[in-house]
C-alpha cells in the first residue's frame, strides 16, 4: 500500500507529513520514558522481520497481491509506541534504498500504515486479548487487529487520494474492497507469528512508566 510520488497533491502530502512527524516525535518521547537500551534489539529484530515479510507478496483474487504491513504484529509484541518507530523505520529504508513508496508520500505512508495502523491495532488487541483468555484470545485479537489495521490504512490512503482529486465515492470502495481480502492474509500471518513468538517464551512488552530498570 506504499503510495508513490505523484499520487498525492502538495496540500495532502504536506499535511500528512506534518501529522506523522508529530506522531513519530510523540512516540519517541514515549519510548524514551519507557525503553531501556537492552530492549532496543527487540525493536531491531521486529523491524528487520517486517522488512523481510513485506517483500513476500502473497497472491489474492483477481491478479492482485498483498503483503504483510506488520502494524498489528509490532503492536501485539512491542506495544504501540515502539511499533510506530519500527514501522516508520521500515518505511524509511524502503523509500530511500528500494524506491518503494515516494519521498513526498513518505509522511502519508508512515501515517497510514504506521501511525493509524498501530493505533487501530492497539485499540483492538489490548482489550480483545484481555477479554478472551489464553491462546484463543491471542489468535482472535491478532487476527481482528490485523484485519482492522489494514482496512484503516486503506481508508486513510483512499481519503488522501480523494483529497488529491480522485473521486472519493469510487476510490474508497475500491481500496476497502481489495484490502478486505489482503487483511485476511495479514491476520493469518500475524496470528501465526505472534503465537510462535509467545510459544518461544517471549514476553510482550507493552511498556509502562517505570519499567526501564526492571530488566
Amino acid at each position: 500500500m506504499h503510495i508513490p510520488d505523484g499520487f498525492l497533491d502538495a496540500k495532502t502530502w504536506v499535511s500528512a507529513t506534518v501529522i506523522s512527524t508529530g506522531a513519530l516525535g510523540y512516540s519517541i518521547a514515549k519510548t524514551r520514558e519507557q525503553l531501556s537500551d537492552r530492549q532496543v534489539p527487540r525493536l531491531g529484530v521486529m523491524a528487520a522481520f517486517i522488512f523481510a515479510a513485506q517483500m513476500v507478496n502473497f497472491p489474492i483474487a483477481g491478479g492482485t497481491s498483498g503483503h504483510l504491513l506488520g502494524a498489528a504484529l509490532a503492536t501485539a509484541l512491542l506495544g504501540p509506541w515502539s511499533a510506530v518507530i519500527v514501522l516508520a523505520t521500515v518505511l524509511m529504508i524502503q523509500c530511500f534504498v528500494f524506491q518503494d513508496g515516494g519521498l513526498t508520500a513518505l509522511g502519508a505512508n508512515i501515517l497510514n500504515m504506521g501511525v493509524v495502523g498501530v493505533l487501530v491495532s492497539a485499540g483492538l488487541y489490548g482489550p480483545l486479548s484481555r477479554l478472551v483468555k489464553g491462546k484463543t484470545g491471542v489468535v482472535l485479537a491478532s487476527f481482528a487487529a490485523s484485519w482492522a489495521s489494514v482496512m484503516a490504512a486503506a481508508f486513510m490512503t483512499g481519503a488522501e487520494l480523494a483529497l488529491s482529486g480522485i473521486p472519493f465515492a469510487v476510490v474508497l470502495p475500491a481500496m476497502l474492497g481489495v484490502h478486505a481480502l489482503i487483511g485476511i492474509g495479514e491476520g493469518v500471518i500475524t496470528a501465526a507469528v505472534v503465537l510462535a513468538v509467545l510459544n518461544a517464551g517471549f514476553s510482550p512488552n507493552w511498556l509502562r512508566k517505570g519499567d526501564v530498570c526492571s530488566e
Partner: peptide, 22 residues
Amino acid sequence: ALLVAVFLSPFASPHPDGLERV
C-alpha cells in the same frame, strides 16, 4: 528475517498490490 528476505522473497507474487490494482 534473513531467511525470509533471501529465500522466500524471490517467490513473491509479481502481481500488482492492492493500491496498484486500484
